[in-house]
């Protein structure tokens, strides 16, 4: 059997809100390592990889590896029924075709359980190679979300360029152009407000803003976002999930023909 218990149930709610519009169905893999998921959007332009390590849960039991096929919109519907302070337990017995979500209020005076039917999903697992990135930008996640939102009111694509000057986000559309430059800034009171740019090589890549805005739905999960860029690879937009793992979004670039 498989069982996990998470006192900070709001975290699972946030994870679902971050991915439910990007991916329709996905296999959630449960192993001794933890609870993980990898899935592409329907057009295979973006990939999301989620890992919640077993040590991060208050209770985690996985007798044997299982893969649970889940419709994310339906899982999000169920998790919406959990209170923000609720303790969440997820349970699946071997050989059954459903998974149970149990929500306990902090004072234990309300206990709900929801059973979600599992589905057979033909998903392709992709091997993501370890890569040395040309540039890695760490910045406040809210700032990144704001930039993507602002630029999408002007254009459909964003050019992200990293140079010695900083990281530049540019777009163009019918009404004109926009450029937003963020410089490295480590002289802030709080580390979560810092912008740190590690550059090995200058890099400039073009991406669809629609996807960036979708990734930014993970903003409530982490105060900082890490953007890793290489000229011949998909960008990685990573949100760390406190002490537990991460949600990583990979986005294939737009390439000049």
């Amino acid at each position: 059997m498989f069982e996990l218990r998470l006192e900070q149930g709001s975290l699972l709610k946030k994870v679902m809100e971050a991915i439910k519009d990007l991916v329709n169905d996905a296999n959630f893999d449960c192993s001794a390592t933890g609870f993980s998921m990898q899935a592409m959007d329907s057009s295979h332009v973006a990939l999301v990889a989620l890992l919640l390590r077993s040590e991060g849960f208050e209770h985690y039991r996985c007798d044997r590896n299982i893969s649970m096929g889940i419709n994310l919109a339906n899982m999000a519907k169920i998790l919406k029924c959990a209170g923000n302070d609720d303790i969440v337990t997820v349970k699946a017995d071997d050989g059954t075709d459903s998974v149970t979500f149990m929500f306990e209020s902090p004072t234990q005076d309300k206990i709900s359980d929801f059973e979600l039917k599992l589905m057979d999903i033909d998903s392709e697992h992709l091997g993501i190679p370890e890569a040395e990135y040309d540039a890695i930008v760490r910045m406040p996640s809210a700032e990144f979300a704001r930039i993507c939102k602002d630029l999408s009111s002007i254009g459909d694509t964003v050019v992200i360029s990293v140079t010695k000057e900083g990281v530049k986000f540019s777009t163009r559309g019918d009404i004109g152009t926009a450029n937003i430059v963020c410089r490295q800034n480590t002289s802030v009171d709080k580390p979560e407000e810092a912008t740190i740019i590690e550059m090995k090589e200058m890099v400039s890549l073009t991406f669809a803003l629609r996807y960036m805005n979708s990734f930014a739905k993970a903003t409530p999960l982490a105060s900082q976002v890490t953007i890793s860029l290489s000229s011949d690879l998909p960008v990685v937009v990573e949100y760390k999930i406190a002490e537990m793992g991460y949600i990583r979004f990979y986005l294939a670039p737009k390439i000049e023909e």
């Binding site: 592409m40 332009v45 973006a46 392709e124 091997g127 990979y250 294939a252 737009k254 000049e256």
Partner: peptide
């Protein structure tokens, strides 16, 4: 116009 590439052209299926 630049053309949208796909994830599967970068990462291989396992």
């Amino acid at each position: 116009h630049p053309k949208q590439s796909t994830i599967t052209s970068f990462f291989t299926k396992l």
